[in-house]
């Protein structure tokens, strides 16, 4: 049985421009998969191919067990899509849009009425349901877009840059919705984003795409660990300094730190912190302050491409 999302050597060109260059993907059931990359990297083109909106130039893809080219209709029945720039008719109300979406998906009237009310409540738009979407804020539109993509209880949900242009509060609220969907209903989520924090917060596994090619793939922590071990900094009383330094040396190589502080590169990754603290406690060393600095996904991106995603400067 195929995974909910699979792609093999999937490519798309526009004239001479290679937007997506032979990507391979496999997203497991119930996974939140982040597709991270800068603008123009090929994220949206990949999503458009996976959601049957765009024909691949070459390669194959299967979504919810069906081929996106030969069984586009079957794929559409099983996916929910919230594309970049919430695609919503501003003259319609939230309720009307949800009803239209229900009709498009062939949901019986009575079931649709209940489902629409339920979804408006889920995304916190019950009070605004009868208002024209043109009067909604950016965050409200995104939430409605999310609700629209969920009307038919899709197996796989595609979110193309769902928080672009949102204020921090709305962004966090939308993240909560996505988490809830994934955890409570088990929806497989394919999320594209250019925000490192978003990928880090939401995705269990990510692929970094640059110039149409996947340059790194794995869980955020593994990818960050590949770049280098996180730095653990510990402050102890002066009398314990040498003992602490000797104890911590077993867990990673020493790193530069200010006077009175011990820093090591934690070989076991972030999970190793509890072991180090336990070892210090066993030797009756009182810890005054602990800090753990993980390599960021930006470091991963820089390591893979030689460029920074945030700020765009050279690494």
């Amino acid at each position: 049985m195929r995974n909910p999302i699979e792609a093999k050597e999937l490519s798309r060109t526009f004239g001479d421009l290679v937007a997506v260059d032979g990507i391979n993907l496999s997203v497991a059931k119930g996974e939140v998969f982040g597709f991270l990359g800068p603008n123009g990297a090929g994220k949206s083109t990949a999503v458009r191919m996976l959601t049957t909106l765009l024909k691949p130039t070459s390669g194959q893809a299967w979504v919810a067990g069906h081929n996106v080219m030969s069984s586009a209709g079957a794929v559409r029945k099983r996916i929910g899509v919230a594309l970049q720039d919430a695609a919503i008719d501003p003259l319609m109300t939230g309720n009307e849009l949800l009803k239209l979406q229900s009709v498009l998906h062939g949901i019986p009237k009575r079931k649709a009425r209940a489902r629409c009310g339920e979804l408006l409540e889920t995304v916190g738009l019950t009070a605004a349901g009868d208002r024209r979407v043109g009067t909604y804020s950016g965050g409200m539109r995104r939430r409605l877009d999310l609700a629209l993509s969920l009307v038919h209880e899709p197996e796989v949900l595609f979110l193309d840059e769902p928080t672009t242009g949102l204020d921090p509060t709305s962004r966090v609220a939308l993240w909560d919705e996505v988490r809830k969907l994934n955890q409570e209903i088990g929806t497989t989520v394919f999320l594209t984003t250019q925000y490192l924090e978003e990928a880090d917060q939401l995705a269990q596994r990510i692929a970094i795409i640059d110039e149409g090619r996947i340059v790194r793939e794995g869980s955020p922590s593994v990818l960050k660990n590949q770049v280098g071990a996180p730095t653990l900094r510990v402050d102890v009383w002066e009398k314990d300094y040498n003992a602490a330094k000797a104890t911590m040396a077993h867990f990673g190589e020493e790193r530069p730190a200010r006077k009175g502080r011990i820093a090591i590169g934690l070989n076991a990754g972030t999970r190793g912190i509890t072991v180090v603290l336990k070892a210090l406690e066993d030797k009756s060393i009182e810890v005054q302050h602990v800090e753990l600095d993980e390599p960021s996904l930006d470091d991963v991106f820089a390591d893979a491409t030689g460029r920074r995603l945030e700020g765009g400067e050279s690494a």
């Binding site: 695609a87 979406q101 498009l104």
Partner: peptide
């Protein structure tokens, strides 16, 4: 208008002929 504002993509991703 629907194509320009992206609404048409919503219609195209629906399971309709």
């Amino acid at each position: 208008t629907d194509i320009e504002n992206g609404f048409f993509d919503r219609l195209r991703t629906a399971p309709i002929n």
